[in-house]
Design a protein around this nucleic acid. Structure first.
Lengths: 360, 360
DNA sequence: GATTAGCACTCACGATTAATGAGTGCTAAC
DNA sequence: GTTAGCACTCATTAATCGTGAGTGCTAATC
């Protein structure tokens, strides 16, 4: 589809004005506000063409025009992408710095805070999925004394998912003994993934805890649970209530239906989809599969460490949104998550390198 | 205020009907639906009296009556309390059993799940505050190897608040050495509360970690942070979006303003207030301090272990609600939290008793 | 004295109508 | 190709009116 320069300008004007006002835009408005050097009549003719092409629509006969899904699509594809990266809106950097400074060392906390910041910045609903790793490995499994009647189980996976469990013991267990068991279990499980937990391994563990088998048997389930939760896609959602401030959701039912959809995890996973391979993905209105989201747009991108795709971050808002700004902020945010994660990875590599040298 | 039996019946009828329909109730409706054996005219006369007493109001001249805050108050005080406990609606027991079965061993998780269940049961917004303890004591502080470049810090307090922190070390630290440090630090801090962490103690800790002081110094901050977070009132909120289904919130702005209020932690703390000393507390409409909540009611109660008041649980809904049912469910829920907590406490006491016998 | 039937009165709500004005499409002139 | 001009459309708002739910009062009845 080829548009002459004037048509492009008019389309841009309509999108800009509609984004700001949420009201259909008329030819006179454009003539007055965006001095294109032609009269409203000329603009009317051009608009008629644009409508024929399906880029704009008239909500009703005597109203102005609003961008159609196709119009936004054209805008996003050809107008935004060119220069969104140049729009170096650094205002959010402060936010992210704060988040990182705020002593985040667990993945889910980082996710949660990032989601919050992003929805605060854009005023839209934000989703972010935690890193997915197919076969996460156990890094540490520890049994620690908690008090006279319980023992604490700490399980950490390769991606620093850490979970605690409390095992009620009813009786005090000797520290040295506990420590022994802890070490033995840890030695057995360290580096193992789910498939590695064979019957044989389990038999060995049961042998280790033979004196307290009934007490510690549930531990196996907890360990497995940690692996599963590390491997399953955890999605954080934030800022849903922001949506209520847009006129698109002035009808409570519309909002309620959307909220209900977003509460279903499966729907969210659907929205997140396959991940975007590093690029930024925009789904406009009807392009979304879910009926409830036909008047929403979803913008998402992925963050990654090294060459492995790690997770997805994105926003959900009404189709009428400032795509250029959102894309820019979103990309910045993704880049920042990558930086945080990469800095962890780099530290790790350095440590390994150092070791190698020592080994020589 | 003394009402004759018929007036009471009429007030009850109005509250019941309005709770069900959210529409003003007229004299003819009452005459037809609730056979009191008198004509609508008689009911009109009685209603006129009830209005004079301020128990019901007319939204406008040609409308039926709706209960006023005062009317609900009268109803709650004199009608509900008498027999709410007999209303043994056991339907939610299944829910709670599931929650408990679902292997909850950390307080905040229990809170979160309880809040969710309660809002699912009542369809209202639920809040629950985690146990408050003035001077929580450290129970366990442990340093554990995580990987080559980081060490994991696990801190547990007396109430089984457990937090993990990751300390980046850049270099591998000898396991035995780490274990030594861990034990020493733990010995120093075990049983200490915030005030006990004197300069002297800190000096001792610094001495223990002298070889890695720069690395482990931030640990002190993390430990303090754990104490503070255990001592501060953590409030879980759940089911806010349920509110959107009530006609009272069919206006988006009303809902948005309420949501915004509930997002402020201070406002929530205000609502929770001082705790209720075991009784059930009902705040109806204008009785609430916050302007935004003048058309809401708050019902709360406290759960406790032993003689110490521990925390508050409650619901927020429109003034038009089924008080009897909510109070009953809420009390049941509180009792269940108490049971879970008491069972922990009991196990503990038993263990101590057993030990005492051994010592003899 | 309490209850009720009857009736006038009030007023929200919905439907109908009319005025307004924002906006378009078309035509003819430039 | 551009524009001025004008007829036409139709959402929106305000005004009007009828309807019905509901009340309050009065007088008759139990």
């Amino acid at each position: 589809m080829q548009l002459n320069e004037r048509k492009v300008k008019i389309l841009q004007a309509i999108i800009k004005d509609y984004t700001d006002t949420a009201e259909p835009v008329g030819s006179r408005t454009i003539a007055k506000k965006y001095n294109l050097g032609v009269s409203s009549a000329t603009i009317r003719n051009e608009m008629s063409d644009l409508e024929e092409m399906g880029l704009i629509v008239q909500p009703h006969a005597s109203a102005g025009r609003i961008p159609s899904d196709k119009g936004y699509r054209y805008y996003v594809d050809s107008l935004v992408q060119k220069n969104f990266s140049s729009e170096d809106d650094e205002s959010y950097i402060k936010y992210i710095k704060e988040i990182i400074a705020n002593n985040i060392n667990q993945i889910d906390h980082l996710m949660e805070e990032t989601a919050k910041a992003l929805s605060a910045l854009t005023n839209y609903t934000t989703f972010i999925s935690e890193p997915v790793v197919r076969k996460t490995k156990l890094k540490q499994v520890r049994l620690l004394p908690l008090d006279d009647i319980s023992v604490m189980l700490v399980v950490a996976t390769g991606e620093n998912h850490i979970k605690n469990y409390i095992i009620p013991t009813q009786e005090s267990i000797d520290d040295t003994k506990l420590n022994e068991m802890s070490n033995s279990v840890n030695d057995l499980l360290k580096g193992k993934n789910r498939d590695d937990m064979t019957d044989e391994v389990i038999r060995d563990i049961l042998l280790i805890i033979r004196d307290h088998q009934e007490l510690f048997k549930p531990m196996l389930k907890d360990i497995k649970k940690t692996i599963i939760s590390a491997e399953s896609v955890q999605v954080h959602l934030s800022g849903e209530k922001n949506m209520l401030s847009f006129p698109e959701f002035s009808d409570v039912d519309t909002a309620r239906i959307l909220f209900k959809t977003l509460e279903e995890k499966q729907a969210l996973l659907n929205i997140i989809g396959e991940g975007t391979d590093g690029s930024t993905d925009v789904s406009i209105g009807g392009e979304n599969e879910l009926e409830e989201m036909k008047n929403c747009s979803v913008i998402k991108t992925s963050y990654k460490v090294g060459n492995d795709i790690y997770g997805t971050i994105g926003i959900i808002g009404p189709t009428r949104m400032d795509y250029a700004q959102v894309i820019s902020v979103l990309n910045g945010m993704a880049k920042n998550i990558e930086n945080v994660m990469n800095s962890i990875a780099k530290r790790k590599n350095k440590a390994i390198e150092g070791k190698d040298k020592l080994d020589e």
